[in-house]
Every structure is written in structure tokens, then in C-alpha cells.
């Protein structure tokens, strides 16, 4: 089997029994077990919240809210997915609920977008003058951070982060976002293409 697939085949029996043990402990009143769940899933939850919620001041409350919801509905978790995927889904839905309540689009703020465009132009100018120079991974990562923020529709940003940073499978991302697996795949292809075009247009025009 190909390494790209092996890396993402996470859901196995070890995970189920680990998850089962932790959930049972929490249901028996063991708060340390819940602390373990928080440690295991915090990275994913924070990624989702940072990508979806433009107001930095509200993010902490949302994360708090996600874990309170997870804690109170843990007895209803049926082990049909990984526990982390289930918590991720709660995070995603909480963010959607927040945006709906605030009547916000799933979009970066206008300021952020303008700022992002400026930064992207700056990066592109920089590399137009040194087209010969190969980009270091760090430089490329810096450009990408801005470019990902510019992706539209904004759900592309979340999908890119979940696939490439959190290394989730298409199925797991589908579970979290309630999108069919085929749609996740399709959106990701488009998002990657847009990213590549956005980044390379500035300094490697001949490749496009």
C-alpha cells in the first residue's frame, strides 16, 4: 500500500479500546481521564476554532464550550468514530453555531483579508526579483500561511488545515464537517490548485 494512505489509516482497535477506557473513566468521575482527552484533542480543536472564528477574543470561550459539551454528552458517544473525530465535530458545529448566532459569514474579517492581500503581494514581489532562488521550506510556509487565509470559500481553509496539518483522512474530515467524502476530496483538489496558483503566480509565471 502507498505511504500516503498508510499514514492516514488511523481508526483501529487500539484507538477504540483506548477511547473506551478513557470514556469509562470519565463516566466514573475520573477528571484526570478527561484531562487526557483534552490533551489528545486540543490541537485539532484549536486548529478548527482558529481557522473558523475571526474574533480572537471569542476563541477561548468557544474552546471551553466545546469541551463542556463533550463532557456532558460523553455518555452518548457510541465509538463509531475516533473520540478525537467526535470532539472535532463538536468543535466544528460549535463554530458554525457561533457564526450563525453572530450572523457572520464563515469568512476572514475585511481587515484581515486586506492585510493578507498586502502580505501576499509583498511576498510575491520579493520572489519576482529572485525567481532563480529556490524557496526554503520555512519561507514557503510563511507565504502559505497568508495564502491559506485568502482561500475562498472559507471552508477550503479548514479542509486544507485538517488534511495537511492534522493529517486526517478524507473520511474523518467528512465526519467532522458533515460533508460527503467525495465532496471533501473535490474541495481539497480545488483548494490545493488555488493555493498553488496563488503562490506561484508571483514568482514563477512560466510554470502556469
Amino acid at each position: 500500500m502507498l505511504p500516503g494512505l498508510i499514514k492516514r489509516m488511523h481508526f483501529n482497535h487500539r484507538h477504540i479500546s483506548e477511547d473506551q477506557y478513557l470514556v469509562n473513566q470519565v463516566l466514573k468521575g475520573n477528571q484526570q481521564a478527561f484531562a487526557s482527552i483534552v490533551r489528545q484533542t486540543e490541537g485539532l480543536v484549536v486548529q478548527i476554532v482558529f481557522k473558523m472564528i475571526p474574533a480572537a477574543g471569542d476563541r477561548q470561550d468557544i474552546v471551553q464550550d466545546v469541551y463542556l459539551k463533550a463532557f456532558s454528552s460523553l455518555a452518548a458517544f457510541k465509538f463509531q468514530s475516533k473520540l478525537s473525530t467526535w470532539v472535532g465535530k463538536i468543535a466544528y458545529n460549535s463554530c458554525l453555531h457561533y457564526l450563525e448566532k453572530k450572523k457572520l459569514m464563515f469568512l476572514p474579517g475585511a481587515d484581515e483579508q486586506e492585510n493578507g492581500l498586502d502580505q501576499l503581494n509583498k511576498h510575491q514581489e520579493l520572489f519576482q526579483h529572485s525567481a532563480e532562488k529556490a524557496l526554503s521550506q520555512k519561507e514557503l510556509a510563511a507565504i502559505l500561511t497568508t495564502a491559506v487565509r485568502m482561500l475562498s470559500p472559507p471552508v477550503y481553509q479548514t479542509l486544507i488545515i485538517l488534511y495537511h496539518q492534522e493529517e486526517l483522512s478524507y473520511a474523518e474530515i467528512g465526519e467532522i464537517t458533515s460533508l460527503p467524502e467525495g465532496t471533501v476530496k473535490n474541495y481539497l483538489f480545488r483548494a490545493r490548485k488555488a493555493l498553488r496558483q496563488q503562490i506561484l503566480s508571483g514568482y514563477k509565471k512560466e510554470d502556469l
Binding site: 521550506q137 514557503l140 510556509a141 502559505l144 500561511t145 486544507i160 495537511h164 496539518q165 490545493r192 493555493l195
Partner: peptide, 10 residues
């Protein structure tokens, strides 16, 4: 690009 995406600061 994929390598840089996974190297992006979280």
C-alpha cells in the same frame, strides 16, 4: 507545497 503546509506553525 505539501511539505511546507505540514511545516506551517500551528
Amino acid at each position: 507545497m505539501f511539505a511546507a503546509l505540514s511545516a506551517m506553525e500551528k
